[in-house]
Amino acid sequence: MTGARELADSPGAWPVVDSTDLHRDRWVVALRRDRIHPPRQDQGPEVGEPFGRLVVEHPGAAMALAIDERDGVEQVCLIRQYRHPGGGTFVELPAGICDVPGEDPVETAKRELREEVSLEAAEWQHLITTYPSAGISSEVHHFYLARGLREVETDYVAEHEEAHLEVFWAPFDELLAAVLDGRITEGPTAIATLAYAVIQSRS
């Protein structure tokens, strides 16, 4: 038994007493300090004092697990990209920030697949949506499976870290093994890989 409550997350923010921007600029990420108060329970009296929490505002990101079958083997399109905060070059999926207001995340994934690795997909399937660090960030990750791939030309001009990224293909089974034994540690890549492996095992 899991109890009377549904086994699911529950949306709804606690009351914010006040909020202070610690950093905000023209980019999409900001840092603020909120003072929040626990909600009243069953219309009862307020319990406890307001307390502070840091919040990283982030519009979210969309990732594409692009798979193509070659000679009977499922191959995944991957990139290697330097990440300064992580202090290294990571194996990742084509991905991008959801920085277009009102845009469906799958459209973000389509754009990033085209811009980063010059691919388009005929089939898109939602895999999973996650909060990578709900304790400090509002960021949401949307994962999609992309199939029916074809190469396309793009006039996108990469800058900064993206200008140095490497595009390569790897068998899915090898990618899964690399995630499980710790050779690949980038969170979204691991989540998408494991989610797809579970979905395949159930089919």
Rank of each mutant, 00 (worst) to 15 (best):
P94R: 01
P94K: 02
A95G: 14
A95N: 14
A95R: 12
G96R: 04
I97W: 00
I97P: 06
I97V: 15
D99A: 12
D99E: 08
D99C: 03
D99Y: 00
V100W: 00
V100D: 05
V100P: 03
V100K: 08
P101Y: 01
P101F: 01
G102N: 02
G102T: 07
E103N: 09
E103K: 11
E103Y: 05
E103T: 10
D104V: 14
D104R: 14
D104F: 07
P105F: 02
V106E: 09
E107N: 13
E107F: 09
T108P: 06
T108E: 09
A109W: 06
A109V: 11
K110M: 14
K110V: 13
R111T: 13
E112G: 02
L113Q: 10
L113N: 06
L113S: 04
L113F: 01
L113E: 09
E115H: 11
E115M: 02
E115V: 00
E115D: 15
E115L: 06
E115K: 03
E116K: 13
E116T: 13
V117Q: 01
V117D: 03
S118G: 00
S118A: 14
L119W: 00
L119Y: 02
L119V: 06
E120V: 12
E120L: 09
E120D: 10
E120P: 05
E120T: 12
W124S: 10
W124I: 12
Q125E: 15
Q125A: 14
H126I: 13
H126N: 13
H126K: 14
L127H: 11
L127D: 10
